[in-house]
């Protein structure tokens, strides 16, 4: 199954905690402003992401979500 890592760049306040927390060094702070005037985090190296959800655990603004994109299998955890 495949997962989709999604950062809502308009909720992100660019605190950088996820960038530091990511064990695979996937995330970086963008140089483009979002709606609120922050520089949000983005996936600079998405191919390295292992969907461990550690960034989600540390994000204070619940801006990161990981969802499945494949059709659901029966014995899905």
């Amino acid at each position: 199954m495949t997962y989709k890592h999604f950062i809502d760049s308009d909720i992100c306040k660019g605190c950088g905690i996820c960038v530091d927390a990511c064990p695979k060094n996937v995330l970086e702070i963008s140089d483009k402003l979002n709606n609120k005037g922050y520089f949000p985090a983005f996936q600079a190296r998405p191919e390295d992401c292992i969907f461990c959800a550690i960034c989600c655990t540390m994000c204070p603004d619940v801006a990161i979500a990981i969802s499945e994109i494949e059709e659901k299998k029966a014995a899905q955890k």
Binding site: Y3, I50, F51, C52, A53, V62, I64, A65, I66, K77
Partner: peptide
């Protein structure tokens, strides 16, 4: 490997 993560229902 990997897991999903969604905003809890209790959060607006």
């Amino acid at each position: 490997m990997g897991k999903t993560f969604q905003k809890p229902q209790c959060l607006a």
